[in-house]
């Protein structure tokens, strides 16, 4: 009767579950403290103090915020489509967590080392539009709907340039596996030869995660709260956490594609002593800081300007770089070996 518990598959299953918990729990803690970091960074930019009352240096602020949201009432608008209204934040949240299944945090520290890792990340980030569009439609409110439409158009547009940036990196690596991409950067990080593509990727990532200066879907001066206008309590919190988790995911992706993942900057013994996940976390934090820095610095784009940049500037530019990079690799015979 208890045979199933001694089954090898079952043990493997338990082991994978433990790995997932080991990744997701720290991730959620980091997400919580990212909200704190954001408030602190923006406060510093604006010469304020930021949260400093709850706990030492205000460190317990995210906990207090979480408790507050938890104790609020969940409101369903009477005209809303209840099931989809409830599903939308779950989709948004779980998708941004699901992406972490393939991200290698250190050498071999990855839940699923699949051959098409980059495509998986790309697919997940393109799916995250559904949480927003579902929320906008199910709320049955014009502000939410307008926010969702803006967001859908924006994310679909910027995926194109992200896709071309990824192609450029893949041409240099010759594999879709994320760990392989990191190994390929042992001699030089791709941010140096492909610097313009990194800039394109970073700006597109801002648009893809609906962050300032492209946070038009939640543009409060014209759309109240955008797609989550009608949301309250934990459903709102799930959107919020999902957005921040997506931000961390995008930063992690940038780290892997351009900053050599868990590799130290120089191949020196002392630097190699430091465990890989610290390098990874450090680089990702730097990217995240840039996200916050941009938010504190730039005003919001107008919608037509956003579309113009996406389609008329980034798309032709990144297409040109794909051609240039592959041409360069062919001329100097640097193409990664093929079967």
């Amino acid at each position: 009767m208890f045979d199933i518990f001694y089954n090898e598959n079952f043990l493997a299953f338990i082991f994978i579950m433990l790995k997932i918990i080991g990744l997701v729990v720290p991730l959620l803690v980091i997400v919580a403290f990212l909200t704190y970091a954001e408030r602190k960074v923006i406060a510093s930019v604006q010469l304020r103090k930021g949260p400093n009352v709850v706990g030492p240096f205000g460190l317990l602020q995210p906990l207090a915020d979480g408790l507050k949201l938890f104790s609020k009432e969940t409101i369903f608008p009477t005209v809303s489509n209840k099931i989809i209204f409830l599903l939308a934040p779950m989709v948004a949240f779980s998708l941004s967590i699901a992406a972490w299944a393939v991200i290698p945090i250190a050498d071999g520290w990855v839940i699923s080392n699949i051959n098409v890792g980059v495509l998986y990340l790309f697919a997940i980030s393109s799916l995250s539009v559904y949480g927003i569009i579902m929320a906008g439609w199910a709320s049955n409110s014009k502000y939410a709907f307008m926010g969702a439409l803006r967001s859908a158009a924006q994310m679909v547009s910027y995926e194109v340039s992200i896709g071309l940036v990824i192609v450029t990196v893949l041409v240099c690596v010759g594999s879709l596996n994320l760990s392989e991409i990191v190994y390929a950067q042992k001699s030089v990080w791709y941010v140096f030869p492909l610097f313009p593509m990194f800039i394109v990727f970073f700006i597109s990532a801002l648009a893809e995660t609906n962050r300032a200066p492209f946070d038009l879907p939640e543009d409060e001066s014209s759309l109240v709260g955008g797609y989550f206008t009608e949301y309250s309590s934990m459903l709102f919190a799930m959107f919020f956490l999902g957005e921040y988790a997506a931000m961390i995911m995008m930063s992690g992706m940038a780290t892997i594609l351009f900053f050599g993942g868990w590799l130290p900057p120089f191949d020196i013994a002392i630097l190699n002593q430091i465990p890989g996940f610290i390098w990874f976390a450090g680089k990702t934090s730097l990217m995240l800081f840039t996200f916050l820095w941009v938010r504190a610095t730039f005003p919001r784009f107008r919608y037509d300007q956003l579309m113009r940049i996406g389609w008329k500037v980034f798309l032709p530019f990144s297409l040109l770089w794909v051609v240039l990079t592959s041409g360069f690799l062919i001329i100097f015979d640097l193409l990664p070996s093929s079967v």
């Binding site: 051959n115 098409v116 495509l119 998986y120 697919a123 393109s126 799916l127 559904y130 679909v156 995926e159």
Partner: peptide, 19 residues
């Protein structure tokens, strides 16, 4: 067929169905 699977996600779910 992992590549086809991801393409199905990216192209059909991520773009066509959104439209």
């Amino acid at each position: 067929a992992e590549f086809l699977a991801m393409l199905l996600l990216v192209v059909y779910v991520g773009a066509v169905a959104v439209l």
